[in-house]
């Protein structure tokens, strides 16, 4: 392994935080500032059958990060995510539904700084 610029930290992020409303919390800016990558969770406006297909892919990709020791966390809440992760044997992950930039910064930095 030659290494590169990756941060080895991956957040599973609700679509509403990836695509916030005008004036909403800019989670991507904070995640970039704190050097985290993003796995986007299915948007809440997708039908359940579509979301289930996407959650299956999220869980499979998260499993690969988990088994390689990447730091993982969940931002926001997504119905069906816990079951999808559990089906892959992924233990419960630290989770935050952030309301402010500072709260998110503190959560992402916890244990790193």
């Amino acid at each position: 392994m030659e290494g590169d610029a990756r941060c080895f930290c991956v957040a599973l992020v609700t679509s509403s935080l990836v695509n916030p409303p005008v004036g909403g919390l800019d989670a991507l800016a904070v995640l970039q500032e704190k050097d985290w990558g993003v796995v986007q969770l299915p948007a809440s406006d997708y039908p359940d059958d579509v979301a289930a297909l996407l959650l299956e892919e999220v869980a499979e990709q998260t499993e690969e990060f988990a088994r390689n020791g990447y730091r993982l966390a969940i931002l926001g809440a997504r119905a069906g995510l816990a079951e999808a992760l559990e089906s892959r044997g992924i233990p419960p992950l630290p989770q935050l539904d952030p309301s402010t930039d500072d709260e998110l910064r503190e959560f992402l930095a916890d244990g790193r700084e």
Partner: peptide, 14 residues
């Protein structure tokens, strides 16, 4: 960028 092949990540995350 964590999903990249080793040696391919150009940034830490986004």
């Amino acid at each position: 960028q964590n999903a990249k092949v080793d040696g391919g990540a150009r940034t830490a995350g986004i």
